[in-house]
Amino acid sequence: MGFGMMNRSAMQTLQLWQQMARMTWEAQMVIALRTAGLMGMVPQDASEPQRMVMEKANAASEALHAALRAAGRGERADRVMAAALLPYRRRTRANMRRLSRKN
Score class of each variant (00 low, 15 high):
residue 87 P to D: 05
residue 86 L to V: 02
residue 46 A to W: 05
residue 8 R to N: 09
residue 37 G to Q: 04
residue 25 W to Y: 05
residue 85 L to M: 03
residue 58 N to E: 13
residue 28 Q to N: 10
residue 27 A to D: 15
residue 62 E to S: 11
residue 5 M to C: 06
residue 9 S to T: 12
residue 67 A to M: 15
residue 5 M to Y: 05
residue 75 E to C: 15
residue 90 R to S: 07
residue 58 N to K: 10
residue 83 A to H: 03
residue 90 R to V: 02
residue 100 S to Y: 02
residue 26 E to F: 00
residue 53 V to K: 09
residue 77 A to P: 01
residue 99 L to P: 08
residue 86 L to T: 11
residue 91 R to E: 08
residue 35 T to K: 04
residue 42 V to F: 03
residue 68 L to R: 15
residue 1 M to G: 13
residue 18 Q to W: 06
residue 39 M to L: 13
residue 17 W to M: 13
residue 60 A to T: 08
residue 25 W to H: 09
residue 97 R to L: 11
residue 7 N to H: 05
residue 58 N to A: 12
residue 41 M to R: 15
residue 93 R to Q: 11
residue 1 M to S: 12
residue 69 R to A: 15
residue 40 G to R: 05
residue 78 D to P: 03
residue 38 L to M: 03
residue 89 R to H: 14
residue 75 E to W: 08
residue 13 T to C: 02
residue 20 M to W: 01
residue 38 L to A: 02
residue 34 R to K: 01
residue 75 E to M: 14
residue 72 G to E: 12
residue 54 M to G: 09
residue 30 V to I: 03
residue 94 A to F: 04
residue 88 Y to N: 05
residue 41 M to W: 11
residue 4 G to K: 07
residue 91 R to K: 07
residue 82 A to H: 10
residue 54 M to S: 08
residue 61 S to Y: 09
residue 42 V to R: 12
residue 31 I to L: 07
residue 59 A to Q: 11
residue 79 R to Q: 14
residue 99 L to I: 06
residue 9 S to A: 08
residue 84 A to C: 04
residue 84 A to M: 07
residue 77 A to W: 12
residue 30 V to C: 10
residue 55 E to I: 05
residue 60 A to E: 14
residue 91 R to V: 03
residue 90 R to G: 02
residue 44 Q to C: 02
residue 7 N to T: 06
residue 29 M to L: 10
residue 6 M to W: 06
residue 62 E to N: 09
residue 96 M to L: 04
residue 93 R to K: 09
residue 68 L to W: 13
residue 51 R to K: 07
residue 4 G to S: 07
residue 99 L to C: 07
residue 8 R to F: 03
residue 11 M to T: 07
residue 52 M to G: 06
residue 54 M to N: 08
residue 78 D to L: 06
residue 24 T to W: 03
residue 15 Q to G: 05
residue 79 R to D: 13
residue 77 A to G: 00
residue 17 W to S: 11
residue 41 M to E: 13
residue 9 S to I: 08
residue 90 R to D: 11
residue 44 Q to N: 02
residue 84 A to R: 06
residue 48 E to V: 06
residue 66 A to Y: 13
residue 56 K to H: 07
residue 32 A to M: 06
residue 6 M to L: 09
residue 43 P to G: 06
residue 84 A to T: 08
residue 42 V to P: 00
residue 41 M to Q: 15
residue 24 T to R: 12
residue 5 M to Q: 14
residue 101 R to E: 15
residue 70 A to Y: 07
